[in-house]
């Protein structure tokens, strides 16, 4: 492999890792606050892509506005999902709410097949993202550069919300101790709803960016990324935002690099995530950045 190919692959890995990180953050935030694996998260990601697709094609919006509308709709959808599928089960055993999540996932996928059609659709080309940029002998699709930059901006904004605002303080309190948070006069329902909103907005952005990179949509496109990003979140230490980012990038890099360096293993690319998961869990069950909570009684 020459150096040009290496940089080429690095750019790919950066953008894939960023996408994984964005979706993994959604898993980790929801888990942090409700101890729930939101199995429908990958499908919310799919919806983000479809919302953008219909906004651009059927409604003929300019892409910038279409993306904002689609991201907003995805966020609202996430909040609606929480309201309909999870809130009524808040006080039920964890297994019930998990089953509800799996059910929501199947429902969204299948309604997606009915409404959007099972046949893949292709996203119309947007020149800004489709341009090939040359750095010497390395040529990169412009969207591959946009994705990491957008991800970094979003990550900075998110960390500011969580660590620097009143809302973020409420989120951290709710995720530590629901009843104690109630005693602080925090509106727990609103905080949880907002968490779903934010995590779905991230999934929506991820869905759109992924469609810019691989401009094909189908109603099951959220399944595999959803699964892998869940793994990324667990590898990083579920409940920890920085961990989700680390896990996402790690997964993206390893996946791209293995395919690049060991092309004969390409058929197994989806399996690496699981191998990595098992390896990390064997060595550190709480994930790379996960820590056992310090509670003194």
């Amino acid at each position: 492999m020459d150096i040009a190919t290496f940089f080429q692959q690095m750019a790919n890995a950066m953008s894939l890792g960023s996408l994984y990180a964005l979706i993994a953050i959604g898993y980790t935030m929801v888990y942090g606050i409700l101890r729930l694996i939101n199995f429908a998260h990958g499908d919310v990601f799919m919806l983000g892509a479809y919302f953008a697709f219909y906004a651009v094609t059927a409604l003929a919006m300019p892409w910038g506005i279409a993306f904002i509308v689609a991201i907003g709709l995805t966020g609202l959808f996430g909040m609606g999902l929480e309201r309909a599928a999870y809130r009524p089960l808040r006080d039920s055993p964890k297994i019930s709410i998990m089953i509800s999540a799996i059910g929501a996932s199947f429902l969204i996928e299948n309604v997606g097949v009915v409404l959007f059609g099972g046949r893949p659709k292709s996203f119309p080309s947007i020149p800004l993202f489709d341009t090939v940029i040359h750095f010497g002998s390395v040529s990169v699709l412009s969207v591959s550069l946009f994705i990491p930059v957008v991800t970094l901006i979003i990550l900075a904004a998110l960390l500011w919300i969580v660590n620097g605002t009143r809302t973020g303080l409420a989120m951290r309190a709710v995720s530590t101790d629901l009843d104690a948070a109630r005693l602080m006069a925090i509106d727990v329902n609103k905080t949880i709803s907002l968490t779903f909103g934010i995590s779905s907005v991230l999934a929506g952005i991820g869905g759109i960016m992924r469609t810019m990179k691989y401009p094909q949509l189908n109603p099951l496109m959220g399944f595999m990324p959803g699964l892998k990003c869940f793994i990324a979140a667990v590898i990083g230490g579920i409940g920890n935002i920085q961990g989700a980012v680390l896990g996402g990038f790690l997964l993206g890099f390893i996946e791209i690099m293995i395919v690049a360096f060991l092309p004969e293993l390409t058929g197994y690319r989806d399996a690496f995530a699981f191998v990595l998961l098992i390896a990390v869990l064997l060595a550190k069950p709480s994930g790379l950045l996960g820590k056992n909570q310090t509670v003194k009684v």
């Binding site: 009143r166 303080l169 409420a170 951290r172 309190a173 530590t176 101790d177 009843d179 104690a180 948070a181 005693l183 602080m184 006069a185 925090i186 909570q293 310090t294 509670v295 003194k296 009684v297």
Partner: peptide
Amino acid sequence: GRRIFPNLTTEENLALGAFA
């Protein structure tokens, strides 16, 4: 059992007390 927020600082705990 006190139910303070163990992963938050003293000041953050106090800020939560004044949340309303």
